[in-house]
Computed example of a mutant assay.
Amino acid sequence: MLSKKFVGVTLAVGMLAFTSGAAVAALSGSSAFFGGGLTAAKIGNMSYWESSTVSANGYATYASDARNDWQGISNADVDYSNASSESTATIRSYAGNYGLDYAGRIVPYSGGREASTNSTWDMVQIILNDYYMDSYGYSNANRHKTTIHEFGHSLGLVHQDSATDSVMKQGLYTYTNPTSLDVSNIQWKY
């Protein structure tokens, strides 16, 4: 009798795990993006400035790869150009010691003030936290993925569920390029 109850519990747990996994869907179309962001016109002509801290902390190649990856998506108008100065750049990137709260993040601005993800942005700061990544043993591939991920946020992409195949899911993953899901979302919007 005890073994039958044990089998029943095991099956129930297995069914719950299957049901919750089946409910996860990749975000696409408008649900893959913040409610606000940079306008399509700005995405098609983004001026980019990079702090010397990006190179000093070893992220220059990752940042260059990220720009090339997002800009290289066919049938999408994503374009980066070099800004003449930090103050004129639409996208500004930094790397350094920002504590242990995050590996990377973006800070959007509108009218010179921090903006919500549901408003229209004028400028976005990309912040790569080398201290966090060092502290948690990020590999080169993990750092590369984090950089591409943050550039994806600057384009308005939200986090994808961990069950999806996307550079936009959070965590220690080794994606070094946007996936087909990421590409199709960028093509849909831009």
Rank of each mutant, 00 (worst) to 15 (best):
Q170D: 08
G44Q: 09
L157Q: 03
G8W: 12
R113I: 04
G21I: 14
T61C: 10
T10Q: 11
Y62V: 01
G96Y: 05
E150M: 01
V24K: 14
A115H: 10
Y59N: 02
I126H: 02
V124I: 03
A103R: 09
Q125T: 03
S47W: 01
S135F: 10
G44S: 13
Y138K: 09
Q187M: 13
A41D: 02
A103Y: 08
N177V: 15
S93R: 07
A141L: 11
N97D: 15
I186K: 06
I127Q: 00
A66W: 03
L2C: 09
A22T: 07
A141W: 08
G29K: 07
E150P: 00
V183C: 04
A115E: 14
G72E: 06
L157M: 10
L172D: 09
Y175G: 13
G156T: 06
G14C: 12
V124Y: 01
V24M: 12
N118Q: 14
S55N: 10
T146V: 04
A76P: 00
H144S: 12
M123F: 11
V7C: 13
A76M: 04
R92I: 06
Q71W: 06
I126W: 01
N177Q: 15
Q125S: 05
S93H: 05
I106S: 01
Y98D: 04
S85T: 03
T10A: 15
Y80C: 09
E150I: 02
I126D: 01
F18W: 06
T179M: 06
A23N: 12
I148A: 07
Y138T: 11
Q187Y: 09
W121N: 09
F6E: 15
S51A: 06
S93F: 08
S81N: 10
Y48A: 07
S20D: 02
S30F: 07
N57G: 04
S180Y: 14
E50K: 03
S119T: 14
G37A: 11
Q170L: 04
Y59Q: 06
L128H: 00
S93I: 11
